[in-house]
Design a protein around this nucleic acid. Sequence first.
DNA 1: GCCAACGTTGGC
DNA 2: GCCAACGTTGGC
Length: 155
Amino acid sequence: MPRNWLLKSEPDVYSIHDLRRDGSTSWEGVRNYQARNFMRDDARPGDRVLYYHSNASPPGVAGLATVSREGYPDPSARDPRSDYFDPKASDEDPRWYMINVAFQEAFPALVSLDDLRAAPGLEKMLVINKSRLSVQPVTDEEYEIVVRMGRGERT
DNA sequence: GCCAACGTTGGC
DNA sequence: GCCAACGTTGGC
């Protein structure tokens, strides 16, 4: 059974439309231990992804993706020229991990954070309460509700 | 191992 | 651009 995740990206940096253009991408640059652990330990190919635009107006879920590669060391942590360079990362201890994600679909209209807050069944979504976590698990029920909202289906 | 200082995230 | 929330760092 695939798991469900919500991944945040700032659309000015890398939006769902960039992902559609590229087909897939490596999710580099996550520098938070809880988010890292989810990618390193739990994410598997075939897991389902809600693609969330943060720092946007409005913020919200912009589409769907899938995990296309399980967690592996994030090379940007070892690259001194990268914005994501971490001098404490090493070959023996990569410290930071990333996954690959593949484009699935862009919603016809954004499911805004306000929409999420207002939707029955989403009261416990982490994005509403633990808004800073950039990789977070989503329950099957939450996933289905958000997908229906994103596709404009009536419940 | 505590906790103050600091840096970052992200909604507004 | 502001700033509250919160994660991380480092001195003790």
